[in-house]
Design a binder for these strands. Structure first.
Length: 263
DNA sequence: ATTGTGGCCTGCCCGC
DNA sequence: TGCGGGCAGGCCACAA
């Protein structure tokens, strides 16, 4: 599903859309519009502009547009089943939980360029969305570039489960359910550990594993490419010590973890 | 402010 | 063979 690694791939794909004048934008489903702008205002804002930069903040892809001084931006979210396509090319090969089928009805948002190319968000489940001038200030620091001090601040002294805190986009942006499980498994930390209870050594370990896990998943091609993923099924075993993994609900999400080495 | 819960959305898979 | 129910989780509204 689209977590940070997928959206990073989408960002790289979207670089190919920069500098190409927009003919028009089309909403396949008006429910796909998020935020305060109406579909009419959003599509009108895109007419004739060119994108000047493709940025990523957590799971949010931001396309800047317009002249400096009158800067606007377009925010794209992908939920758990959203794909990005540019001129028919996909940003990622495979998307777990989503469908591989090509159904034009799932093209929720299309930007048609004057040169004939298209940027398409294809999302069967409508869990993603498009927003004009998204408020990025509500997002925490990006998980790929977060500093140790920022990560410690994100966890704070909270009594909330560590995993829930890591997935709180307002405090740390980019970590979703699959990566949280992978990260905690690698860092030997239990998902239900209180977020504020980590020792300095555990903070360091978590920060180190966060960076290396994300970098590795980006290289491997997605959030589903972790070492824990194949065992994230009933009867699955820990690849480190052979213990049968436990499935429980933490922070309202299905969590798989090793009861032997994660504490 | 913080935290937890339920609903939205729909393709897919399983059991009957 | 068709059908109903459960599941998946990012995000947001809402309540306490």
């Amino acid at each position: 599903m689209p977590e940070l690694p997928e959206v990073e791939a989408y960002r790289q794909l979207a670089q190919g859309a920069l500098g190409r004048p927009v003919e028009r934008a089309v909403l396949g489903d008006r429910r796909f519009v998020r935020g305060h702008s109406s579909p009419r205002i959003l599509t009108a804002a895109l007419r004739g502009v060119s994108f000047t930069a493709a940025r990523r903040h957590g799971k949010l892809l931001v396309l800047d547009m317009g002249e400096p001084g009158a800067r606007r931006s377009l925010g794209l979210r992908f939920g758990m089943t959203g794909r990005l396509l540019l001129d028919g090319r996909a940003g990622v090969d495979r998307l777990i939980y989503s469908s591989e089928r090509e159904v034009s009805a799932w093209d929720r948002f299309t930007v048609a360029f004057r040169d004939g190319g298209r940027l398409v968000v294809r999302d069967p489940r409508l869990l993603g969305g498009v927003e004009l001038d998204p408020d990025e200030s509500v997002l925490g620091p990006d998980a790929l570039s977060v500093t140790p001090a920022e990560l410690r601040r994100a966890l704070g002294h909270s009594e909330v489960a560590l995993k829930a805190r890591l997935m709180d986009q307002h405090r740390l942006a980019g970590v979703g359910n699959l990566i949280a499980d992978e990260l905690l498994w690698r860092a030997s930390l239990a998902p239900h550990r209180r977020a504020g209870s980590l020792t300095p050594a555990e903070h360091r370990r978590l920060h180190r594993h966060l960076g290396s896990t994300l970098a590795e998943l980006i290289l491997r091609g997605g959030s589903h490419c972790g070492d824990l993923m194949p065992e994230r099924v009933p009867g699955g075993r820990c690849r480190r010590d052979g213990t049968e993994l436990v499935r429980s609900t933490v922070g309202g999400r299905t969590s798989w973890w090793c009861p032997r080495h994660q504490h």
